[in-house]
Amino acid sequence: MILLKLYDRIILGLAALGAASLAVVTVLIIYDVLSRNLGWTPLNATSAIVEYALLFSTMAAAPWLVRINGHVSLSSVIKLTPRAVQRGVNRLVLLIAASAVGILAVVSGRIGLRQWQSGTIDMRSVDLSGWLLYAFMALGFALMATEFLRMLLRGEEYTGAGGEH
C-alpha cells in the first residue's frame, strides 16, 4: 500500500514538475529578451532548455492526463452501440493502449541506454546529453502504460472527457 501511495505521489509530482517547467520556460525567455536589449549577461542555455522543457512537460504530465481522462478521445460513435459492447471495446482500447505505449517505453529506453553508453551529445544552443530526451520518453510512456493498466484492472473506463477547469 505504501508503494501504491508512493506511485500516486510520483504521478502527481511529475505533473507538477511539468507545470513548473513551463513557468521556468516563461521566465527564461523573458530574461533572454531583457538581457539582449539591456546588455545583461545572456544565457546561452535558454533555447536548449526551452526545447527540452517542451518534451519534458509533455512526458511528465502525460501519465496524469491518462488518469484524469485528459487525452482527447472521440466517443460519439461508440456510444451508439449497446452498453455491453461499449464496455468490451473500452477494455480492449485500454489493453492495446497500454501495450503500445509500453513498447514505446522499452524502445525509448534502449535508444537512451545506447546513447548513454556511446556518450552521444545533442548539440543545441549548449551541448546536452543525447540520452536525456529518450529518458523523458521512456519514463512518460512507461507511466502512461501503468496508468492505462491501472484503469483496466480497476474496471474503470477511459472517457477522454477530462476537459474540466
Binding site: 539582449r36 546588455g39 545572456p42 546561452n44 535558454t46 533555447s47 548539440m123 543545441r124 544552443s125
Partner: peptide, 24 residues
C-alpha cells in the same frame, strides 16, 4: 564586440572569439 549574431552550434565558438554574442 557586443554584436548579436544568430547562433549556430557549429560557429558559436568562432563568433564568441570575435566578441559577438550568439543569440538563438
Amino acid at each position: 564586440t557586443g554584436k548579436r549574431l544568430r547562433a549556430s552550434p557549429l560557429y558559436n565558438a568562432f563568433y564568441e572569439s570575435l566578441g559577438a554574442i550568439p543569440v538563438s
